[in-house]
Write a protein that binds this DNA or RNA. Structure first.
Length: 128
RNA sequence: GAGCAUAUGCGCUCCAUCGCUGCCACCUGCGGGUGGGGGAGGAAAGUCCGAGCAACAUAGAGCACCGCGCAAGUUAACGGCUUGAUAUCCGUAAGGGUAUAGUAGCGUAGAAGAAAAUAACCGCCCGAAAGGGUAAGGGUGAGAAGGCGGGGUAAGAGCCCACCGCGAGGGUAGUGAUACUCCUCGGCUGUGCGUCUCGUGGGUUGCAAGACCGCGUAUACCGACAAUCAAGGGCUGCUCGUCCAAUGUCGGGGGGUAGGUUGCUGGAGGCUACGGGUGACCGUAGUCGUAGAUAAAUGAUGGAGGCUCUCUCUUCGGAUAGAGUACAGAACUCGGCUUAUAGCGUAUGCAAAACU
RNA sequence: GCCCAGGUGGCGAAAUGGUAGACGCGCUCGUUUCAGGUGCGAGUGCUUAACGGCGUGUAGGUUCGAGUCCUAUCCUGGGCA
């Protein structure tokens, strides 16, 4: 069980259900590290693990290819730095769901996005 | 050479590391793992047209409404495309843009102007005057009653004549739009827009269509309606027609689910050769296998190299440095159109000015 | 993915193809008051010394004339099983 490879990120680690998405975009804990707003839910569960969701508003970035690029950068960064949080979740038997929402009008580089993601993961880890 | 026009092609490459998602094979403790091999575009975009496909009746009739409107061709189809015709505008040119069904009747046209269509303000003529005749001259306007000359007249006027223009019929050429140093006839005519008429196309809704499985449940309850007429409903703006029929239909009202499979990619398919055609395109033969995700894959980071521009140096071969490397991401599938696009080509054509 | 609606002063908006900005709010000036408010009167797109020129999201087109009609484009908002 729980053979999570070091750097993979498969579809099973994504928030998919309509109910969960609605919950994340509704009332729940949130925070902000430029340029990313994040919302998350922590609950005790038998199926411990971390599920995530990445989003870029159409309002801020008109062209689909730019939204794709930013979303991929976020996803890539999360993939490379998620290990610590996943370990914590599994050891304490917590199911964590996180939504990352890109809220800048600027098109930032991978480095800037990576810094933000790392900080967010640290914050979440502290709070739960 | 550079420039311009038309048509058309391409639109970054390689390596390393770490990943994503279908397919195939094998392994498995059924969670998954390993290996192999696929994985964005010319516009995938806008959603502006035309089709396929699906449901509603195997989609029927009339009205309303909307689109289109030169000719011939092309096509599954089209409002697209091709080749032509006429008019007009832009350009030195090659070439490009726009328009073109009909008009009998009706409506309408601010300001200006005498008057915007059965014209008389000034002027001219007749007349004592009242009044009448007159579209040659004036100014207004986008548009003013075919043009110019001659005859004619009180003054004038297609009132008459020649020429030009226009319209009708014929002839010739062309499949046709149309054309003409052709013939005959007619004294001929304001312009725009709308309405209207004619032809032609469109039933409506769209893959969130639709089908199956699973979960859940309730044949809950209330109301309306029928076997003759009729009412109601069947995704339509109206009418007709047609179909449905109590284990029924519709409305109210409350409850449940919102997951999976399928539709889903082999199609009016691409490429090559030959043949037909001015061309769009068509025919024959060969050959190729080419994305199917679903809160949504096709990527990230680092390095090297192309290409373009600029600066400096130069032994004119090139070298160093810097900057740039576009527009953009499949969402059922095709055919077009439109719009965005850094750069780099290829073919054919043009010649006024300026530069070398 | 599909289908709709709308863009006019600083704001909300009106305008049959015929002098763009009616009307309301706001703002400015004057007046009334010891002062402020209220009330009353006038003004209020940009540019120019003036004459004029430009101006209805943007770019074209039709027309004598376009906020209005047509085409393309940009922006804003809404709907869906």
């Amino acid at each position: 069980m729980n053979i999570v490879m070091g750097n993979t990120l498969s579809a099973s680690e994504r928030v998919k259900l309509r109910r969960d998405v609605a919950q994340l975009f509704g009332d729940c804990a949130s925070g902000f590290v430029f340029p990313i707003k994040y919302k998350y839910i922590v609950e005790e569960s038998a199926a411990a693990g971390v599920a995530v969701l990445f989003s870029v508003p159409k309002r801020l970035h008109k062209r689909a290819n730019k939204r794709n690029l930013l979303r991929r950068r976020m996803r890539e960064s999360y993939r490379l730095s998620k290990e610590a949080l996943v370990a914590v979740a599994e050891s304490r038997g917590l199911a964590i769901k996180i939504a990352f929402i890109y809220v800048s009008k600027e098109e930032l580089t991978y480095k800037a996005i990576d810094d933000a993601i790392v900080n967010i993961l640290a914050e979440i880890q502290e709070r739960c």
